[in-house]
């Protein structure tokens, strides 16, 4: 489990300023970034229809996550296997939609299905909001995922509120039975949702240099 040291600043001197935009996995675009670029992304009504993967240099303080789960919405059939396997694997066989760290939002009549995965944010608001610093960087598995140390979690739910201030639905959830917050930890490098999605709608994107996704690049709320 990560310790206090893992929360140390990981300053990077990269001057790279590239915004990588992925409307869907098969059609990848690279855009030059700038203030205008970010404004475009944040203001675009289509932002939630795509998963943005953004390289960002300024202001980052924590080690970037090295992986993130991406969604090809077009292939999603709404079967919710991702949710089912997530809770089965990560909650000791307690199968439930409510315990899934990937959240499938469905409009059943329109057929509009959206798997919401954790962005493993560049600046994770969940981590910053935790009053007891129970959200840590997973250096042990090497994913640098932002994970909940359940032994330290006091169930304040501040992480859920903080994430919810920019993302809907908030990605951390609350395990009522155990009284702790839960969130995506990338299954320590082998995300089961990706492995089990029968339709190939999920992809585990990995970069040794770190993935630049989530807040503050993307704001949904």
């Amino acid at each position: 489990m990560a310790n206090e040291k893992d929360r140390s600043l990981d300053r990077r001197d990269s001057q790279e300023q590239v915004v990588r935009k992925t409307p869907c996995i098969s059609r990848r675009q690279f855009l030059k970034a700038g203030v205008a670029g970010f404004a475009f992304l944040a203001g675009s009504s289509g932002v939630r229809d795509m998963l943005e993967l953004v390289a960002f240099a300024e202001g980052e303080q924590l080690a970037l996550a090295k992986g993130v789960v991406l969604v090809d919405k077009k292939l999603c059939s709404g079967c919710r296997t991702c949710e089912a396997v997530c809770s089965t694997y990560n909650s000791s066989g307690r199968s439930s939609s409510a315990l899934a760290r990937v959240i499938l939002e469905k409009d059943y009549l329109k057929g509009d299905y959206e798997a919401n995965t954790c962005f493993q944010c560049v600046e994770p608001l969940c981590l910053q909001a935790c009053p007891v610093e129970a959200i840590k960087i997973d250096k042990k598995s090497g994913t640098n995922a932002r994970i909940v140390d359940e032994e330290e979690c006091i169930g304040a739910k501040d992480c859920i509120g903080a994430c919810g201030s920019v993302f809907t639905p908030p990605r951390p959830r609350f395990d009522v039975e155990r009284g702790v917050a839960i969130k995506c930890h990338l299954c320590f490098g082998d995300p089961q949702c990706v492995k089990f999605c029968p339709y190939g709608a999920l992809e585990f994107k990995w970069s040794d240099d770190g993935v630049r996704t989530g807040y503050p690049i993307i704001k949904e709320g």
Binding site: K74, S77, G111
Partner: peptide, 8 residues
């Protein structure tokens, strides 16, 4: 597009 029952 494909549309599945739960866990199918």
């Amino acid at each position: 597009l494909p549309d599945a029952c739960y866990a199918c």
